[in-house]
């Protein structure tokens, strides 16, 4: 009987404390990240299609969970980077070749359209690399000087805001060369900052 009463007290106390756990608000910049994701999805509906995973693929992803370990992520990222560079060099060389024969076989409109596709591809690869580096940077943050981390995070936040603004501007005029240049510069800055956070040792 005493035992039961004690257990009831326990239950009541745990439930009361659990109920009193504080409600947390996410940081303000989180909506900016979500907004950027959604804007990206709007620009790349084909990416959305690829992102749909059926349950079998999800199961496979869980099986491959070891890839989430930092050393495997780094290795995968390196492979991706090298492969990306190789493909880029190939594409650029193909485009150079195409350019030489363009006057004969292709209209300038077609070349422009292909170039724009390449730019879209570049943005896609930057986004993908940044997502991966964000994970790695977060994992490494706890090993670094908090002041350094805070400064870098401020920089990251302002770069993400700049990227979101550029993307909004590109929604109005998708191929504005100046905005594209700002966006790519912001991507490069963000990528190098995250890479520094991910690889720096205290």
């Amino acid at each position: 009987m005493t035992r039961n009463t004690h257990d009831d007290e326990w239950d009541a106390r745990i439930e009361r404390i659990a109920e009193s756990l504080p409600v947390q608000d996410p940081p303000e910049h989180l909506w900016k990240r979500i907004e950027a994701d959604i804007a990206y999805e709007k620009m790349h509906p084909e990416h959305h299609a690829h992102a749909k995973e059926d349950s079998a693929l999800q199961w496979l992803r869980w099986r491959l969970a070891f890839l989430a370990q930092p050393r495997w992520s780094m290795a995968a990222f390196s492979v991706l980077l090298i492969a990306g560079l190789a493909v880029s060099v190939y594409i650029v060389s193909m485009r150079s070749h195409d350019t030489r024969t363009a006057s004969v076989r292709a209209s300038s409109e077609q070349l422009l359209s292909e170039a724009r596709d390449d730019i879209d591809q570049a943005m896609f690869f930057y986004e993908r690399a940044i997502t991966k580096l964000t994970v790695l940077a977060k994992q490494n943050e706890k090993n670094l000087d908090p002041q350094f981390v805070a400064l870098q995070n401020e920089k990251i936040l302002s770069l993400r805001t700049a990227i979101t603004e550029c993307k909004s501007a590109l929604d109005e005029n998708r191929y504005h060369p100046d905005v594209q240049q700002y966006l790519l510069t912001a991507y490069v800055d963000l990528q190098t900052t995250l890479q520094e956070l991910a690889t720096k040792k205290n």
Binding site: L21, P22, V23, Q24, D25, P26, P27, L30, W31, R33, I34, D37, I38, E41, K138
Partner: peptide
């Protein structure tokens, strides 16, 4: 919904980084 969902994610993971990422993935 942000407070309800973020609090739940934060309690689930036990840290704010995963909570933020989960909320981001959820809205996507």
């Amino acid at each position: 919904y942000k407070s309800f969902l973020y609090s739940l994610a934060w309690r689930f993971h036990g840290n704010r980084f995963d909570a933020e990422d989960s909320l981001q993935e959820t809205f996507l």
